[in-house]
């Protein structure tokens, strides 16, 4: 039976929700950015490089990247308790690992670059939106970087691979259920800096989903690029 797979919100399987990006949203920060996937909105603010406190966490070889991810208490339908939780600590760490291969802090020993990510509104893929915003905010803060990173979540709903999951799809229960794979890669799609997998998937389909992510990341990169370039053109 060959039947076109129908997603709950009527998107095509490789269609990303409408994306919006903007830099310079937090005037007091050294660099900041907003990134939006449909109803998922993340803002990131970057402070530094600045002196690292507590001192024992300083690295005399290079600067340290420190990320904090948090969801606003009003970001989901049921109010969530603000402050660090098991989940937000994990995502903070994941964001750090996804970004650290591209930031070049060799010339800033004993310093820290603080990245604060807040989710204003959540409808799945928050970590991906957060990483996208953080990458733009780091560039906006003038931190030397090898490349920008783009992040997208690939999902397997029963047996079909789809790009950019939303909440309804994340809770898919038919057939094999849902598998969620957030992937972060460099702008060219050459290198993967972060991949997570929640669920079951065959090796063949995993390879396919990486290909899908590569295609999607090109579109996301264009959005990030034009946001950064436009903000400077406006000033000129």
């Amino acid at each position: 039976m060959v039947k076109e797979f129908k997603r709950p919100d009527g998107r095509k399987v490789d269609e990303i929700r409408e994306m919006k990006a903007k830099v310079g949203v937090v005037p007091n920060a050294d660099g900041s950015a907003m990134f939006q996937f449909g109803e998922t909105i993340a803002i990131a603010a970057v402070y530094g490089p600045k002196e690292m406190h507590p001192q024992h966490e300083q690295d005399p070889e290079k600067g340290v990247l420190r990320c904090t991810y948090n969801m606003m208490s009003f970001s989901v339908a049921d109010r969530i308790r603000p402050g660090p939780s098991r989940r937000s600590q994990e995502i903070s760490k994941i964001t750090e690992w996804a970004l650290s291969p591209v930031v070049m802090l060799e010339n800033f020993p004993n310093t820290v670059v603080d990245v604060h990510i807040y989710i204003l509104q959540a409808n799945a893929s928050t970590r991906c939106a957060g990483i996208n915003a953080a990458a733009m905010a780091l560039a906006h803060a003038g931190v030397p970087m090898k490349d920008l990173v783009t992040s997208v979540s690939i999902g397997k709903l029963n047996k079909t691979l789809v790009v950019d999951l939303n909440k309804d799809e994340e809770d898919w229960e038919e057939g094999e259920g849902a598998t969620d794979i957030p992937i972060t890669m460099t702008s060219t799609g050459e290198k993967i800096t972060h991949i997570q997998l929640d669920g079951k998937i065959s090796v063949k389909q995993l390879k396919e989903s990486i290909e899908l992510a590569r295609k999607a990341s090109k579109k996301i990169y264009e959005v990030q690029k034009s946001a950064l370039k436009n903000s400077m053109e406006e000033e000129q």
Partner: peptide
């Protein structure tokens, strides 16, 4: 010209 990190 305006450039972003990683751009040739």
């Amino acid at each position: 010209k305006i450039v972003i990190p990683g751009e040739v």
